[in-house]
Amino acid sequence: MINEEPNADEFSYPGLGEVMFMKAENFINSVLSWGRSRSLWPLTFGTKCCAMEMIPFGATKVDADRTGTLFVGDSPRQADLILCSGTISKKMVRRLLSAYEQMASPKYVIAVGACNISGGLFHDSYNSIEGIDRIIPVDVYIPGCPPRPEMFMDAVLALQKLIRENKEQGH
């Protein structure tokens, strides 16, 4: 016999109830991830130049609101996503960390701009952090110095795709 029967002690087919439960769980998960992906409210953690391109991202020309990225501008408690942009100085690190910790899970991070990803232009400065991924986990990176507003849109759509495909569970 080529196909050996699996040992009943080690393996058993799931019962109907279990299958139903798994189906329901999958359905709920997909609905949740759809909702999560389509309603990313960002916390605008902008420190420098990139913040000035982040605002046109929400303003008339690009209009982040089209994808449900609503700039509620409220406290970190209500945000799902940190749009972390600009140089993070050593004085700013603990503020970034506490803002991140105040957010409710699931939360996502987009690192905007060269300074934020790797230190960029200011990598040899004595007071900048070379990349925020040393401090908090980052989901999507937007390169550029500064990136165009369209790139913010691209990044948000990419993050939405990751969330919908359950590749990104949030933190």
Binding site: S89, M92, F122, S125, Y126, N127
Partner: peptide
């Protein structure tokens, strides 16, 4: 102030 202090004046010397 000083939350985006990058040490630009030192960088100019470098």
């Amino acid at each position: 102030i000083g939350y985006v202090h990058r040490g630009v004046e030192k960088m100019a010397e470098m």
